[in-house]
């Protein structure tokens, strides 16, 4: 069962591994990234952040879709962390998930700041708008103790 989909360019860190995993009661984390598999250094660093007692799986977008479809993940309380908005949108549409959490999206040249941890470019903005139009609840929340901000109110 999918507990939550989150967009977080840092994938696995304290906010995800401790705060959210505990609050959601998740027992498996699925990190979805299309760049991670080829980045040995980043993989090594992320492996250090693995919390105990929780399964942590790394997949690319297609691999994530395949593994969820295969039914292997059904017995887990799954928490999916996507590196980009685009990946999250793809998964949300594929599995008809009506809620997407925006956690951290990195700053970059020409990006618009919509909250203290979310910076988006035109493409990301369009994707988020489309998701909202499709009836998906896109909300900004870094950690569970923080108040939810509805994305539709800030973009």
């Amino acid at each position: 069962m999918i507990k939550m989909i989150r967009v977080d360019y840092r994938l696995l860190h304290g906010q995800v591994a401790v705060s959210w995993t505990g609050t959601l009661g998740a027992d498996a984390l699925l990190l979805v990234s299309d760049t991670l598999k080829n980045d040995k250094l980043r993989l090594q660093m992320l492996a250090l952040a693995k919390p105990s007692g929780v399964k942590v799986v790394v997949k690319d977008t297609q691999g994530a879709i395949d593994v969820i479809k295969s039914g292997k993940t059904d017995r887990y309380s799954l928490f999916i962390i996507c590196e980009t908005v685009e990946i999250a949108a793809k998964l949300a549409r594929e599995f008809d998930i009506k809620s997407v959490n925006l956690g951290n999206i990195s700053f970059g040249e020409g990006k618009q700041k919509i909250s203290k941890s979310i910076y988006i470019n035109e493409d990301e903005k369009r994707t988020i708008k489309e998701l909202i139009d499709e009836g998906v609840d896109v909300f900004i929340q870094m950690v569970p103790t923080e108040n939810k901000i509805e994305a539709k109110n800030v973009i």
């Binding site: 492996a47 693995k50 942590v56």
Partner: peptide, 12 residues
């Protein structure tokens, strides 16, 4: 061993 083993992560 598959390619994915040894990177410190799990499989479903």
């Amino acid at each position: 061993a598959t390619e994915e083993q040894g990177d410190g992560f799990d499989e479903f």
